[in-house]
Design a protein around this nucleic acid. Structure first.
Lengths: 348, 348
DNA sequence: CTGAAAGCGCTAACAA
DNA sequence: TTGTTAGCGCTTTCAG
């Protein structure tokens, strides 16, 4: 005898399954609730019946009563940076595997997430993950009231990342990375260094800048020249032009992310005719896929996106049961040397 | 007297507002339901009270009863192509503005969306938008049963896009675009043309290939050489190598998207030392932001992402009220000539 | 272990 | 125009 899908009503409910299996609705509910007590054979019967009828628990009803939805809110800022695209894709996959849904919203401008975030919170989301988005106090406050834990990705609350407060964060080791870049550039015998910064409010930028500048100071170098590229291609092109037009043109530029470094390469090469890697060194941060393309061969500091995403998912899961188990995680990366920076002079 | 937010209970419901405003719960509900009949002053009073109490309707409860959630399911395939990233960001913004939520899921491999899609459908989503994802018959069937309309982006159901069936689609004018590219390449006096294809099942690839090949045939040219790049960078690099190693090396390559064209440029230039734009012409499709970068200056056919997304949103809205108002929309683009293709010989 | 019953927060007839 | 009433589909005490 073949068990076929029966011609079910448009929407199958616990009732239908209960009747068909000759049990109570509660039994059906319990069959779909992992921890609940139900005899094995009954559970089996119910699952089979449900299956035959094409029943699936309605997550809306479930969320309504449980006060929790299995949905994770994910806010993205600017997806122009491939690093965040990669992260988003990883995050999406991993959350799906953890049986969590993703509710996506854009928060293009810093703090511009405000209007829709309140709406998202109403869905009783389990957590809010912010990619490349800053935190406003109003947002923090709203989340606190709604008891929705926040996980920042690639950002910290305060630039100086003190003890975990009531938001979590997962970041790369920006200071160490920037110091590694600085050391590498100094190894190439560069004398006039420059830094192209991201946005001012970004903790990530602050840390990368501090790491870079501090290392130079420790080695007895003057502070680098500084221009702002706001983490985007166009502004970084303009910033590079300003740097390269100076009488004291820098001989090495560290950009706070790869997108800006690619812009710097483009300008140096195509507008100033410079041989990047010989006449000038350029380094970025993130190690996006494009950095490895032969036409760029950008020296960069790689961020372990996969690992960082794993930590985010782990945190999200943990926060689901213990809402205040906040952590501040720092994931180490590694320097990837390619052709855009002059190799270190080997000691004789 | 200042109206302050009162120390509200953790979750404010219609009841609380009703009591505070001295009206019934239904009145409160109506105040938040646009079309319902309620006296203006009562509505005003209720809104004010709700506001003071910090009340917001619970979308979960609302969706449960209405059988519709204001959520749009969005499935993304491979985000390696910036065209889809751009689209996703636009889509996200526009849907937010239309007061619709986005539930994101990944469908990395063709037809790999299957497991989680059933789960998403349970949320009684208003529509399913598929970016760069093919449609399997099982998926179609499941959506039909759940009465969830499907909108395909940049894909059609059957490669030959007959009359609209029970899925909608919004696509670029691939045939025309590919013909324009072909005409442009022939104008540059190229004789041995090649095509680097995307994936076989993609209607987009089929249309671009057909447009290209047909035009060549019409002009009395032999069919182009053909290699598969599967729409991705690495495979396209390999495909380009195979083409350029042939004794009858092509003098012009049309790639089914920009990502592959960038790969082709990279290989031609860095592995074969070719002067792209003089010794060989390369053209892509989509006109992603990178195509305009000076280091590439890729000739491409621009797809109007913003307009296509607007159409998607319009369709989604229409389908919300009339679930079978399906359409098949074709948005025209335009040729963008840059440096990677030899300019047409001007008639003397 | 199991069923009955009471809601989660809201909407939508149905009367008034 | 308004309030009353009955659920949407599910979970979860509370008895048994």
């Amino acid at each position: 005898m073949i068990t076929e899908r029966e011609p079910a009503p448009p929407t199958v409910t616990v009732h239908d399954v209960a009747r068909a299996a000759g049990v109570s609705q509660s039994a059906v509910s319990r069959a779909f609730t992992p921890g609940s007590s139900l005899s094995a054979d009954k559970r089996e019967l119910i699952i089979a019946t449900a299956d035959r009828l094409g029943y699936r628990p309605n997550p809306l009803a479930r969320s309504l009563i449980r006060g929790r939805s299995n949905i994770i809110g994910v806010g993205v800022g600017n997806l122009a940076n491939p690093f965040f695209v990669q992260t988003l894709q990883l995050l999406c996959d991993r959350l799906e595997k953890a049986n969590l849904r993703v509710m996506l919203f854009s928060a293009a401008s810093e703090g511009g997430a405000e209007p829709s975030i309140a709406e998202i919170l109403q869905y009783r989301i389990d957590a809010l993950v912010l990619l490349s988005v800053g935190l406003t106090s109003r947002l923090t406050e709203e989340c606190r009231r709604a008891k929705v834990p926040i996980v920042l990705y690639n950002r910290t609350t305060s630039p100086l990342a003190g003890a975990p407060q009531d938001v979590s964060c997962v970041v790369g080791d920006n200071r160490t990375g920037a110091r590694a870049i600085a050391a590498h550039l100094l190894g190439g015998q560069h004398k006039r260094l420059a830094f192209i910064a991201g946005t001012a409010e970004s903790s990530t930028n602050a840390q990368r800048e501090a790491g870079f500048t501090d290392y130079l100071a420790e080695q007895g170098f003057a502070p680098p020249l500084r221009e702002s590229g706001h983490f985007n291609f166009e502004d970084a092109m303009a910033a590079t032009r300003r740097l390269l037009l100076r009488p004291d043109r820098p001989d090495a530029i560290f950009c706070a992310n790869d997108t800006m470094a690619l812009a710097a390469i483009t300008v140096a090469r195509h507008e100033f005719g410079l041989d990047v890697g010989r006449e000038i060194s350029i380094a970025g941060y993130d190690d996006v896929p494009m950095a490895a393309w032969p036409c760029f061969a950008l020296t960069s500091y790689s961020q372990p996106a996969a690992q960082m995403v794993s930590e985010v998912v782990r945190l999200v899961q943990a926060l689901r049961t213990v809402p205040d188990a906040h952590e501040a995680l720092v994931c180490p990366g590694n320097l990837v040397v390619r052709g855009t920076t002059r190799p270190p002079r080997v000691a004789p």
